[in-house]
Amino acid sequence: MTSKVTLTVNGKERSADVEARTLLAELLRDQLGLTGTHVGCDTTQCGCCVVHVDGKAVKSCTMLAVQASGKQVTTIEGLAAADGTLHPMQEAFREHHGLQCGFCTPGMVMMGIDIANRMPGADEKTVREQLEGNLCRCTGYQGIVEAILSVVNPGAVKDHHHA
């Protein structure tokens, strides 16, 4: 049995027929075609699937699509401006080499923005703690931390690449 779920995704109202057990990540990827949200573990560990629901970072592999009914969802596809200008957090990841294979990157960028929203001015130790639920299998954490730090606390960045 399916039911219709209606939610706002990246500013646009979207509807789809889903089963009760359909995960938000599955709705986004398989039904709405937004494959920028990745599923790395499907066990709430890796953070590749992080999106914002009503402005807060959540793991979309551990939320039902029906639970997002009526809510505002933002995915990695919703960040850049219409003319392609990157969001400042995306630009920071480019500038600071915050990605290698790119698999963890959508979740890292979405969590980075969440950290910037919740704790402006955070220091490096705090940023690292806040990334506890986002795993990078290429283990390029240095660039990721620098990128996020450059947005939340520019003064704290010790830039290794452009010194």
Binding site: T44, G47, V50, K56, A57, V58, K59, T62, M63, M111, D114, I115, R118, Q130, E132, G133, N134
Partner: peptide, 9 residues
């Protein structure tokens, strides 16, 4: 507890 995304839910 856990990580920020877990703490949001």
């Amino acid at each position: 507890i856990g990580d920020p995304a877990v703490r949001h839910r």
